[in-house]
Design a protein around this nucleic acid. Structure first.
Lengths: 189, 189
DNA sequence: CGAGCAATTCAACACCCATTGAAATACGGC
DNA sequence: GCCGTATTTCAATGGGTGTTGAATTGCTCG
């Protein structure tokens, strides 16, 4: 075997290095050469396995977690416990090394690359949520809060102890906030 | 040719174009050549007036608004009205073209340039606030929310009607959130 | 006028970038 | 053994980057 491209060992190494570097430095600041160096192969292999740098990025974030589904579930519950449930889900995603890396990979490049922006936009607001109308504002605001938290944390602004031990600190601190947020956009309809 | 304007006015043009482009595209995606083209001058003038691209960036964001002072004032008030007061201040800053441009200029490049990260960090948390200890977490969380809001909005994720008419929509939607946030980090100490 | 000085232009440097195509290597099937 | 395919290397291309230093303009003042 070993004729299918997808099974190549270095191909996976490239993917992993790319995910790491894109998350750490962002799309623009990550060079194909740096990826190849990290993966321990020749730079020419990158456009060989993946067609281009942008295609590589797309492949890296192809199966990013879709926070919208979690948000939708939280909205469906609707009661007070939804906030804490949502927060635990989010924190768990952030803490999971694989998921966290993917999320950061998108977040870190979302301002540089149109495709990243579009993906995040679509991931955050699929049609089902958009169609619900009244929920839209709440979804965006919760997303905004999470984006801010992740960005701040990535910038080293947030105390890391907030996220230790299953993120109890973060959950406790943010639960009332998310609670207020989930009820915020609710009109009198 | 044109009349002599004391201190070069192309220098100001460079500064203005740089502020625009840095805010729009970020530090890394903005080239000196693009700045010069926008300002209508030769690229060599940029390193001539300002020593380097990074120095130009520093000059552009030299007098960025310091949200920490506003935050501190809000914390000093401490009552429920503080949240709304803080929000109105923040929204006003975002809407002001000059301030908004500066803020975006920092936010957009804070992940690319260490100096931007350091500046934002220092701007958000001066020593007075840091020394207060218990307030620190609250300051960071409020900052995170604002960072998220600004980022989301810059990504085009947020409904712009939220910010029309003095940002009444945003204030209304976020007031209870900020309220919860200002009380969140309060420990039993 | 012409010297002096700032403002500006021009051409070039050295470097990094993504991408390409041809050559070289490893390796399983016949 | 050889063949074909997949994998990898090598060298090069064309373009963009920040920055530099010398040359050129434009203007003010002696």
């Amino acid at each position: 075997m070993a004729e299918a491209k997808g099974l190549s060992d270095t191909r996976q190494a490239i993917m992993r290095s790319a995910a790491d570097l894109f998350a750490e430095l962002g799309y623009r600041n990550t060079s194909i050469r740096a990826i190849a160096a990290d993966a321990g192969c020749d730079p020419a292999l990158v456009p060989h396995y993946f067609d281009s740098k942008e295609a590589l990025y797309s492949a890296v974030i192809a199966d990013t977690v879709r926070p919208a589904e979690v948000l939708r579930e939280a909205l469906r519950r609707g009661d007070a416990g939804a906030a804490e449930w949502l927060l635990r889900h989010a924190v768990a995603d952030w803490e999971d090394p694989e998921q966290g890396r993917r999320i950061l990979g998108v977040l870190r490049s979302v301002l540089d690359l149109p495709v990243a922006r579009e993906r995040m936009s679509r991931a955050l607001l699929p049609r089902e949520v958009a169609d619900s109308g009244a929920d839209e504002v709440r979804v965006w605001l919760v997303s905004s809060l999470f984006i801010g938290i992740m960005t701040s944390r990535h910038m080293g602004l947030l105390d890391e102890t907030l996220f230790k031990e299953g993120g109890e600190g973060a959950v406790d601190a943010l639960a009332p906030v998310v609670e207020a947020l989930l009820g915020a956009g609710e009109p009198d309809v």
